[in-house]
């Protein structure tokens, strides 16, 4: 049903650390691998080995260049997947009841057997978290690996979303964001975890940890400008000699 639950018992979600993400795309690949064999229809591809491959992915990584007023620019890698919003606009627009948010853990899912593939939920999502499957013609989205996290048939350490399990930099964390004592909630509190596009009122469950301020950035000068004018020792002698030679 596409009415949102008034309250969810838990708010399972991800905390993504933009400080440590190295942009390796391992989470993207592991997400595709797991979700092609798990919940729902396979994550389809068209022309997968041809000139114009295209397919449905539930997790994608953008990269941004941040230029502070003073100091060197830096690259921030930015993984983006469904934020499992408390006030999820993708759910309420759905005409068939295929899109829903679970009251027990807050996960937003698509019942693929009810999906007519109209695409309105993808238009309603501010973040581009939903993609139409090019083969099955139903809407695909992150399930928070609902078929892993409660799965008694796999080792306990694997009962987290595939992206979290895979991340070699430990930039992705999974837990209950409704519980203030949980590791993820503490991480959000300690690191100033933030919402994406808070003004749109979607109340995302997933949080992003901003990059830590680098020591160099506060000095106000890029690295290259901070070489001493007159180095001493052999290099100083060489510098002075070459200057004399013109």
């Amino acid at each position: 049903m596409t009415a949102l639950p008034a309250l969810t018992e838990a708010k399972l979600g991800l905390v993504i650390d933009l400080d440590t993400c190295v942009g390796c795309h391992a989470c993207v690949v592991s997400c595709k691998e797991w979700n092609t064999g798990g919940y729902g229809a396979p994550l389809g591809d068209r022309d997968a080995y041809g000139d114009t491959p295209e397919g449905a992915w539930l997790n994608r990584i953008h990269s941004y260049e941040i230029s502070p007023e003073n100091g060197p620019a830096e690259i921030v890698h930015f993984p983006k997947s469904c934020l499992h919003c408390d006030d999820a606009p993708c759910v309420t627009v759905c005409p068939t009841g295929a899109s829903y948010k679970r009251s027990e853990d807050g996960i937003v899912l698509v019942d693929e057997d009810r999906c007519i593939g109209c695409g309105l939920c993808a238009w309603a999502c501010p973040y581009g978290a939903r993609e139409m499957d090019p083969v099955e013609k139903v809407m695909k989205k992150c399930t928070l690996c609902v078929d892993r996290i409660y799965n008694d048939n796999i080792p306990e350490e694997d009962r987290v979303p595939a992206c979290v399990r895979t991340c070699p930099a430990n930039a992705r964390h999974f837990g209950d964001l409704a519980d203030p004592e949980s590791d993820v909630s503490q991480l959000v509190a300690a690191r100033g975890g933030m919402d994406l596009m808070p003004a749109l009122g979607t109340k995302p469950v997933n949080k992003y940890l901003p990059p830590r301020r680098k020591a160099d950035r506060d000095s106000g000068t890029p690295h290259a400008d901070r070489l001493p004018d007159a180095p001493g020792g052999f290099l100083g002698w060489l510098d002075a000699t070459l200057d004399r030679l013109g």
């Binding site: 295209e54 260049e65 921030v76 993609e131």
Partner: peptide, 27 residues
Amino acid sequence: PATGLSSLGTVRPFEPPHTGPTYLTRE
């Protein structure tokens, strides 16, 4: 606000996640 990064400086998209068009870019 889409990236939450503007407090650190000017944010410029540097590299997209994919090399070709996707459902998102076409729609």
